[in-house]
Each structure stands twice: as C-alpha cells, then as structure tokens.
Amino acid sequence: MAEFEGRQTYFRPEVSPPDGPSPLGRRGYGSCTFCHSSDTVWQHDLNASLCRFRTMFGKGKVWSTSHKVCDRCEHLYNASEYAALARLQTTNPPSYDDELADHLIGLAAFCRADRGPRELEQPDFPPGFEPWEEYTGADFVFGVWPEERRAVVDGVELVASPWPSLDLTAVFRVLWTWAERDKPDEVTATLMIARVAEVLAWPETNALSWLAEQR
C-alpha cells in the first residue's frame, strides 16, 4: 500500500489543480464515483496520463478524467480510508473473488492521477442532461448518442438517457456489458463503436431485458 501512503506528500503536490471552475461538475447531477449517491458535492479532475491501471488478472482499465464525490466519501478519501471506499464499490456478495482487491488497485491509480478536489457549483444544465465525461472516458460516445438526447451548453457536451426508466449510470452499464460481452482481445475499437451505436438505437424494452440479465 505504499502508493496510498504517498498520496498526500507526493501525488497531490506533484500535479497542481487547474485554475478556475470546472465546466463539467455541477452539484446535483451525476452520482458519486464511490457509493453512487446522487448527493454529490465535490469534483476531482484526474491527470489523463496517469489514469490507466491493471487489475489483479492484468486487465487494462482507465479512469475517466472527471469524477463527482459525495461529502461522506470525500471525508473517507481525505482520511485515507481506502478500504472503506473499496467496500462501497464492491457488490454484496462480491461478483468475483478479487473484486475488492481490484477496487483498491483502482483507488491507487485514482490517488496518483488526482488533481485535487473542488466544490461543485449549482446545476444549470437542462433537466436530465449531464456531461458524458462524468461516466466514461470513451470520447466517441457523444458522436453516436441519439441526436435528440444530446446537447452542448456553454461548450460542455451533455447527454440524456434514451430510455425514460433508466438513469445514465444504468444506461452506461447496458452499453458496456453489451459492447464488451466477448473476450477483451476480440473487441476492436471499430466493433466497440458499432455496438454502442446499436444499443443506443434499441427500444427501452430491449435495454431493460438485457440489464436484467446482468444482475
């Protein structure tokens, strides 16, 4: 756990936070990165060059560069309570043997890339629309999103759920579980984009059916 121990003396001072308010984070939109609470208060921007990490089995992962955090999880994070944060992210029971360990590895990468917290502003986006960058680092998403469910406000690219009964967290779960249903080395970038576009054209009943199968 040496990476965790060095966060406040090495990782944070190494990368200074950007100047000015972030255009992405808005209080009341999105959910907490760690516990999925909608009562978000803080935003953490990450250094994109430090966001990649590998799980216990060597699978490559990458954090998106913008994350919202609720006040409870922010206090846990600042108190270095990483095990508690990892448990909040882990399903009960765990979906696989090393899930908790993988979340701890991910937290080490998060700490390394973290530019520091900032308090979120009050929301001023259209109801239901949120920045896609708060949910994924896949920059092709906005281009394939249904035109009537995307918008640009003050230079920020926003998306809204294409299915009324699902929030964006659930929407992205549908997208990625469908697009990545094969072995990782069988899913090319072109195939990934095509599958995401395919899912976004589904009727709501198809999305609900697929999501139910993943539980």
Rank of each mutant, 00 (worst) to 15 (best):
S165M: 10
D71S: 15
M1V: 13
D45F: 05
R87I: 09
R149M: 13
P123G: 08
Y135P: 01
S80E: 11
W42G: 00
L85M: 09
A84L: 12
P123Y: 06
W145T: 03
P131S: 01
E198T: 14
P23Y: 05
Y29H: 13
K61L: 11
C35G: 02
A138K: 13
W42S: 04
P23G: 03
C32A: 06
S22I: 00
W210E: 10
L208S: 09
R72E: 14
A160W: 01
P23D: 04
V69R: 00
L200H: 08
R7G: 01
W163E: 04
P17A: 01
R173I: 12
R118L: 09
D39Y: 10
D98P: 01
S37D: 03
Y96L: 01
V187F: 04
V41T: 09
L200R: 08
V174N: 02
T33Q: 12
L100H: 10
A207F: 05
A108C: 09
P203D: 14
Y77Q: 00
C51R: 13
R7D: 02
A83W: 14
C111F: 06
D19S: 13
F142V: 05
A83L: 15
P127M: 06
T136I: 03
V159P: 00
L24N: 06
D182N: 10
R150D: 05
A109D: 02
W42N: 03
K183Y: 12
D154A: 13
S209Y: 07
E134Y: 05
W42E: 02
A212F: 09
E130T: 11
P131K: 00
A83C: 15
S161C: 01
D102I: 03
G143I: 05
F34P: 03
A79K: 11
E198M: 12
M1S: 13
T65M: 07
E121Y: 07
A113G: 01
K61T: 11
K61I: 08
S37L: 02
N206A: 11
G20F: 08
E213F: 09
Q122A: 10
D39G: 08
R87W: 10
Y29D: 10
A108V: 07
P23I: 02
M192L: 13
N92C: 10
P126I: 01
A109L: 02
D45T: 07
A101H: 09
L208A: 09
A108S: 13
E157A: 11
S209E: 11
